[in-house]
């Protein structure tokens, strides 16, 4: 019988202890999606520092049968956590990204576009303080990839692309200030940051997170059996909202 084996690069999402010396890791790879496997000796002094959420790894997965959990051998490619460990907001961002990917992605299903976006987003955490704008775009990409995409290109009421200020919670489409009319109280905010604009003070980030959070909760999480969104996202939202308030 042919032995199952593949090689790919991926980013580490989570680590769990397995017995005394091994760990079970969950990675997000380009060609094999979210995939779990055992790393023998994963608690050793040599390997444990490599196995931090957000680390980029070169992976070889082997198993006797495809449905087996299998075992990984790992080589470090890039450690992202070390660069941001001193930055509490960026660290909260890393936790939210890895937790949401682990929460939302089906196992062993390739999502190459989302993989590319996620890698770029994780790198962005250490590159610019404006990363929350990128994070909002990443949450939109996550929703899009899993079938809950928003259409923020034109107003659902007037068809115009100007003055877009709201998002309809029902259709996920943008609504302009003019088109909102008497429904304005029932619409979700559409700050510039949600459209990818890097503003001076990033003041619209909390509103943007409120809007994406609505669709993550009522769309994605609802479809997954109304599971609560990961606590790590709530902590990020709380942190960024407090930063804007202060």
């Amino acid at each position: 019988m042919a032995r199952m084996e593949w090689r790919d690069q991926g980013t580490l999402l989570s680590v769990r202890k397995h017995g005394e010396t091994s760990v079970i890791i969950e990675v997000f790879t380009a060609e094999h999606g979210r995939h779990a496997g055992v790393v023998r000796g994963g608690v050793s002094r040599k390997i444990a520092p490599i196995l931090q959420p957000g680390s980029q790894l070169d992976l070889v997965w082997r198993a006797r049968l495809e449905e087996h959990i299998g075992a990984f051998t790992v080589e470090p490619v890039k450690s992202r956590a070390a660069a941001i460990m001193g930055d509490r907001n960026a660290l909260a961002g890393l936790n939210a990204i890895t937790a949401l990917l682990s929460f939302a992605l089906p196992e062993r299903e390739a999502h190459p576009r989302l993989y590319t976006r996620s890698i770029a987003m994780l790198d962005l955490l250490a590159e610019t303080p404006a990363w929350p704008v990128g994070y909002l775009q990443w949450e939109l990409a996550l929703l899009e990839e899993l079938g809950y995409g928003l259409d923020l290109t034109a107003c659902a009421v007037t068809g115009g692309a100007e003055d877009l200020a709201y998002v309809s919670p029902k259709s996920g489409r943008a609504v302009s200030a003019e088109g909102a009319g008497e429904w304005v109280d029932r619409l979700l905010p559409l700050p510039e940051e949600l459209l990818g604009v890097v503003t001076q003070d990033l003041a619209g980030i909390p509103d943007g997170l409120r809007t994406t959070g609505y669709f993550l909760t009522h769309g994605l999480a609802h479809a997954l059996g109304d599971r609560p969104l990961p606590e790590a996202r709530a902590r990020l939202v709380d942190r960024l909202s407090r930063r804007q308030a202060s």
Partner: peptide
């Protein structure tokens, strides 16, 4: 040393 430790040490 892993690159994360070297990064932390340099900082």
């Amino acid at each position: 040393l892993d690159d994360g430790t070297i990064t932390a040490a340099l900082r």
